[in-house]
Write a protein that binds this DNA or RNA. Structure first.
Lengths: 165, 165
DNA sequence: CCTTCGAGTTCCAAAAAAGAACTAACAAAT
DNA sequence: ATTTGTTAGTTCTTTTTTGGAACTCGAAGG
């Protein structure tokens, strides 16, 4: 399977990864959330080659995650800004950051702390159920295939014991 | 910057991506959450080459996300199971899935629905503040660099107006 | 002895990334 | 008028990573 086929898969994770499933893309989005908007600023902060950066920005624009908006004419210059679709990736990015804070930080702790203006506390992200607000754990979620995919998406559990095993 | 340098970066997202920052790795984890445990089952479901699959599984084991546990001797066979560190990636994976359900699903809707056993409802993941429980939005989060990195991690905002712009 | 199973490894061709230099369209300085 | 600087890329060559298919190892079964 190649990049081009990923977004055709009947799987929301695969489809999401067809947009953000590579390390540079997610680092570009991280910098967008930090307020970076311009080509040369991305390049300087990321240490990515200009070639790859140009490609990733183009893909993100095509995917509707970022938009090029002009900030001057003569010469025309454009910067990259989030669309709503892009800004909604915040939760996914924060979930990845929270995992990294917990499992990949050295002895000194996380390099960046997040303070929630609403409550004033240093916090991390917790994923909860949209309906009842309880934190999500794998074994509490039951999966239901949409009718048109019955029996095609979930594994047959030939050997598996359980999700938590 | 290459894979090998990513985990040295003072950024929890970069460090997380040094483990899961590629499309195959995250699809392997998806299947793990669905109960897949064995090499040939991953290969059949993913459509990845055995070569790359072997590499990704090895990386995940080295990172402490999966563990090889024997399920028979003579001949010895091992399967891949989550560690706690790995199982805690569930929130990040679900956040990516929720975004895909919302923005990448076709007219027929998401291929898989998630029902929360606790409340019985079809749900999606919502990332909330660990301290006050409010859903996270970018502009409500204030970033604070750890003392040893003062001024080195966050951009200078030479041109940027605001995170939401 | 020959085949099957499970979990890989090996080999070659094709695609993608790294790294560095170059271009276009202008503005400002010498 | 020519040189220098800025921004956002493109082009070129070398190295690395994938894709695709075949092959190996250790054992069990017929």
């Amino acid at each position: 399977m190649r990049w081009e086929e990923l977004d055709q898969q009947p799987c929301s994770l695969a489809r999401t990864l067809s947009v953000v499933g590579d390390r540079w893309t997610l680092l570009v989005l991280r910098d967008c959330f930090l307020g970076v908007r311009r080509f040369d600023d991305f390049e300087a902060r990321l240490g990515v080659t200009r070639h790859v950066l140009a490609d990733r920005l183009k893909r993100l624009v095509e995917a509707g995650v970022l938009a090029k908006v002009p900030y001057q004419e003569r010469p025309r210059r454009e910067e990259y800004r989030f669309t709503e679709k892009g800004r909604d990736l915040y939760q996914a990015v924060m979930a990845l950051v929270s995992w990294g804070d917990r499992y990949m930080a050295g002895a000194e702790g996380a390099p960046i702390r997040h303070r929630h203006k609403g409550c004033g506390q240093v916090m991390h992200g917790v994923l909860v159920c949209s309906e009842c607000g309880e934190p999500l754990v794998p074994k509490e979620i039951e999966l239901e295939e949409a009718p048109e995919w019955q029996g095609q998406l979930l594994p047959a559990h030939r050997h598996a014991r359980s999700v938590e095993g």
